[in-house]
Each structure stands twice: as C-alpha cells, then as structure tokens.
C-alpha cells in the first residue's frame, strides 16, 4: 500500500471520518474569527468594546482574541487612558 507523501490526510479520512463536533467547532471558530477581524477592520478596540459590539461574553472575546494574537492576526496596541484595557488592531499581513 503506497500512499503519496504530502497527501496522507485523505487516506486517514477514509479510515476515520471526522466527527461532527469537530467540523461544527471549526465553523463556529471561523465565524467568530471573521466577526472579530471585521470589527477591528476600521479602528482598534478594547475587549469590552468588542464584546459589546459582537454581543459576546467578554471572557469568550478574551479567549478568541488572544488566540488570534497568538496566530499573528491581531496585535495589541496602546492601552486606554485608565491603564485598564489594551486596544487591539489587525496585524497587517502578518508583518507588524
């Protein structure tokens, strides 16, 4: 049984179907990601501002936004006047 290198995922897919939850989870993440990136398109925002705008619990925004920071799509900006919340902005092209 020869399987081509670099195309092995297909092989496993046949043997082991992807569970529904996993695809659901991916959809929901993609949706949230889009929404956050969309919301940050124009101006930088703080987490409470994002939560308000997206109508999402703040803790979920923290989690998702910080993941996007980690993946290099969003970057922290200045801190607000009260020194409480950072602003976040889109990271252009992954290069600063």
């Amino acid at each position: 049984m020869e399987i081509e290198k670099g195309k092995t995922a297909k092989y496993l897919k046949e043997k082991r179907p992807v569970p529904k939850e996993v695809t659901e989870q991916l959809k929901s993440f993609t949706k949230t990601k889009k929404a956050i990136l969309n919301a940050l398109k124009e101006v930088h925002k703080t987490i409470p501002e994002l939560a308000m705008e997206l109508n999402m619990p703040k803790e979920d925004v923290v989690y998702q936004l910080m993941s996007l920071v980690k993946y290099g799509q969003v970057a922290p900006d200045d801190i607000d006047d009260m020194d409480e919340y950072f602003y976040y902005k889109i990271k252009s092209n992954g290069k600063n």
Binding site: G6, K7, A9, V22, T23, Q25
Partner: peptide, 21 residues
C-alpha cells in the same frame, strides 16, 4: 481528535514530515 483532516498542513510542510498514516 480535533483535526478536520483538511490536509492543509501537509501541503504547507516544506519537509513533508507530516504523515497521517
């Protein structure tokens, strides 16, 4: 457990070290 087996990683890997078999 959480992989959708989309194969994107395999295609991106420069050394072809990813192996789902």
């Amino acid at each position: 457990e959480n992989c959708t087996l989309c194969g994107a990683c395999e295609r991106a890997c420069p050394t072809k070290c990813i192996d789902f078999t």
